[in-house]
Design a protein around this nucleic acid. Structure first.
Lengths: 240, 240
DNA sequence: TAGTGGTCTAGACCACCAG
DNA sequence: TGGTGGTCTAGACCACTAA
């Protein structure tokens, strides 16, 4: 019972929408009515509804009500800040991570710039390939600040880095910035990936920040062209 | 003075952060202090701060305060629901839209499914190429419900479709869902794009919804590999 | 006109962080 | 311990929608 009221209400309503207790296209009960049902103030209901709206469950229309959206259309929210493990398990496919390299190394000028640390600082360098249904389709090169994450093992990198950081170290991963583009495949790509006949890879560069805004991880993720897929759900900013 | 208080405060604070009146890494005044300065309640300040947080200006830390982030790092927010015109003008490059086709046509099964309308319904079909610095790098195939957008001209498609829809028709574009992947280049791509030696394109399929949740536009956007770039700023979901 | 969501208020209690 | 942000309340007024 430690959970926030508005989160609990959000989850309750989200479940009801997903199980079609509220049909697609119909209206949610009004905020006033919901505040009665859940015995909370209207502002608390509004927080729950904002979560539903942000996550694509409802569309709020002034003067009318909250329309139930077809959430089944938005199958896999690959977008956002989600670990490979979380995506892979949600997809239901067989997956596996191979750790090719896990070393402490001195940051060169490129890595130092990306992690915003002095050149020569000791950082973790991890090279992993991601296997889905028996094919190596992603090559991840991670650089992690050793002062923030002192100890790493092959097991942690194979299993789930984020789970270790959040559940063992109790650090809070807060936000990230991804940049995507297409690049020529390198010899390294051909070494670690099942490249077949492809000459390009999709590169996803990712900066990941902790709650105190420190930049702790920089990842260069190289995806085989034919297996790359990214989904983005966006609301139009009226502001600014 | 019609503007909401919290939006006005958001913009004021965002300006001050961008002009470094609040240095990167320092703390914003406390919510209590700000509510005094702006003569509003604390909840109103909190709405403004939430906007700042969502847009990457600050990071809120409980018990501590709101840390100013380095917003200049997030140069081009190409992510989200933004029209080509808005992106192109923000980049400062010379751009141009060529309208190759603008016709009313009956939806085939593919388009009918994408727009969730019956097969045979009359829809707008628009084929446009986007030129940046003299090269045709994007091919846009738009399908638009004619019952929602009755009149379209070549000029509107060349200039800005979204501006017409929002400012002339007073419809509110609300949210979209993008899906990205890489595909073989077609003959059509080679006809309309300056393809040079590339054999693949990045495809961005986009469903765009109005405020009343009607799906009014489906776009297949085909980007030349070497010119594709996408930036995504994401906060980690603690919820769910 | 009645009902809806959008904004705003003044106050309360809590968990967390730093000195 | 004092200050911070996170949650929650009960009420108010407004703009918008639909009948």
């Amino acid at each position: 019972m430690k959970e926030n009221k508005f989160v609990a209400i959000y989850q309750d309503l989200a479940d009801k929408i997903q199980s079609h207790q509220y049909p697609v296209g119909s209206l949610l009960p009004s905020e006033k009515e919901l505040s009665g049902t859940y015995h909370v103030s209207r502002e608390t209901i509004r927080k729950a509804l904002n979560l539903l709206s942000q996550n694509g469950y409802i569309q709020k229309v002034r003067g009318k009500g909250s329309i139930i959206l077809d959430v089944s259309r938005f199958d896999f929210p690959v977008s956002g800040l989600v670990s490979f493990k979380e995506i892979a398990e949600a997809s239901g496919k067989k997956w596996r991570t191979n750790v090719h390299e896990l070393v402490l190394t001195e940051a060169d000028s490129h890595i130092a710039k990306q992690l915003r640390i002095p050149v020569g600082t000791v950082v973790w360098k991890i090279i992993r390939s991601r296997e889905v249904d028996g094919e190596r389709i992603i090559l991840d090169k991670d650089f992690i600040r050793q002062d923030l994450i002192p100890n790493l093992t092959k097991e942690i990198c194979e299993h789930s880095l984020y789970q270790y950081i959040e559940q063992e170290l109790h650090l809070i991963i807060s936000y990230s910035r991804k940049e995507m583009f297409v690049s020529q495949a390198t010899d390294e790509d051909k070494l670690y990936l099942s490249m077949n006949d492809f000459h390009h890879v999709v590169v996803v560069n990712n900066h990941v920040f902790l709650e105190d805004t420190s930049l702790f991880q920089y990842t260069e993720s190289r995806h085989r062209l034919d297996k790359f897929r990214f989904v983005d759900f966006a609301r139009r900013q009226s502001v600014k």
